[in-house]
Amino acid sequence: MAGAVVARTGDEMSGPALLVTGLAITGSPLLASSVLAGLTVSAAVGGPLLGVLLDRARRPGRVLGWCLAGYAGGLLLVVGGMAAEVHGAVLVGVAVVTGLLGPALTGGWTAQLPSVAGPERLARATAFDSMSYNVAGLAGPALAGVVAAVGGGVAAAVVSVVLLVAALPAAYGLPAAGAGSTTGRPARGGGGWRVVREEVRAGFRVIVANVALRRATLASMVSICGVAMMVVSAPVLGARLSGESGYGALLLAVVAAAGLVANAALAASPRGPELVQAVGTAVLGAGMVVMAGSGTFWVAALGAAVAGAGEGPQLTALFAVRHREAPARLRGQVFTTGASMKVTSFAIGSALAGPLAAYSVGLTLLAGAALQVLAVAVLAAPLLRRAGHQ
């Protein structure tokens, strides 16, 4: 779990660091948002393939370790290219290749929980794993903001790479496939690309065929697209309200802190995960509206806190649905494929938010809030249909 927190903290730190670096070098959010979009969009390919590799590897921790090393190296190339004022198209290309390994930092770790915790402690480990995203989301942007304010965006990006490398021993130390679990699929090797292709299709099929998984996944994709608009807007909003773009990273830290507190408060809630996901998404959208209308940094921070109070429980509820509905033999693929879908939606939101934030940061945040409304509609549709039949 410590390795996952360190790796995810480095990942959460890298996004704000890239945004601040690009904004400082060019004075425009366009390059930074384009690089961030490139870093995330390729997860659509990387996630499903990584899921197959993890399910079939005898030592999945080594797969995660190589992914961490490759991701850290790619980030160094992107940041170094920014500092050297390399052409933007080249930077985006490097980011796209690096992003293929991105799902290792999210679903890749979560898929290993049954081997690490065993069936008797899986529920507790899942709760801690969900909260680790909030811890990383709190520490990453906060570190990025502090380091960027002191040493600039390049220094913040370098620190994020150091954190990713620090997680390598934990990844390599993960147990062999199936250890501690009686429900996992035995690791297998060989079979060629035909078998890999079939297993990728199986992972997608179970998400599409299962109604609860499909609805929760679609809603999370729509919602994260709007969250990306908030993430891209944060440095611009911070610069507008305080004169320093690094304060935008602190806004993202407020979002993560509020999410952590909300998760802790709702840990023992008897409510179903679908209801928690819908309410959390609505609260997230309300926070974005407050941020859009903010005239001071403190009002923006209040809106960020409201957004986080919704985003934290929303993520925990999504994990609960996946663990409940995913077949044991495809659990790894469901998590990594689901993560890749969310990351790809985040990339789309980032790409749309760059030009929009350059025109109006308030309009960008309102667009993100509108997407939360759409996500709530996806989750609430069956409830409304049942109410209409009564």
Rank of each mutant, 00 (worst) to 15 (best):
A317Y: 00
P175I: 07
V35C: 14
V97S: 13
T21Q: 06
T183P: 02
S34M: 14
A369I: 05
L250D: 10
N134T: 14
A170F: 06
T344G: 12
V94L: 13
A89I: 14
M221Q: 08
Y71L: 15
G70L: 14
A127M: 12
G151E: 13
T336L: 03
V290R: 07
F128R: 15
W193M: 13
R214Q: 13
G27T: 11
A369M: 03
A377H: 02
E325T: 11
L168T: 06
A278R: 04
D11F: 12
P141A: 11
V255D: 04
L371Q: 03
W66K: 00
E12K: 06
L318Y: 04
R240N: 13
G140N: 01
V165D: 06
A377M: 07
A292R: 00
P119Q: 12
G310H: 02
S294Y: 10
T217R: 00
L384S: 11
T344H: 09
V321Q: 00
G310N: 02
L318G: 04
R59L: 13
R197Q: 12
G243R: 13
R240M: 14
M131G: 09
E274F: 02
V6E: 06
L302K: 07
A84T: 13
G140F: 00
V63A: 06
W298A: 09
A4F: 15
A326T: 07
G145S: 14
N263P: 00
M291I: 10
A375G: 01
G259R: 01
V146D: 08
S233E: 05
G295Y: 02
A320C: 10
G74I: 05
L374A: 14
A309I: 05
M13F: 11
A262I: 05
M288P: 04
A265G: 00
A264F: 11
L23A: 08
R188T: 15
V5N: 02
V52K: 03
L75C: 13
P103M: 14
A239R: 03
G46D: 14
G368W: 00
V222F: 05
V162P: 04
G293H: 11
A282T: 06
A95Q: 03
G61P: 03
A264W: 12
S245Y: 07
R121A: 12
G303L: 01
T26A: 15
G191H: 08
L266C: 11
P48M: 14
A24N: 13
G272W: 02
A317M: 02
T40A: 15
W66D: 04
T217Y: 03
L50C: 02
P16V: 09
T344A: 14
T98P: 00
A187G: 12
G259W: 00
L122G: 00
A171N: 06
V283T: 09
V195S: 14
A176K: 08
L371F: 07
G368E: 03
L363P: 02
A304I: 10
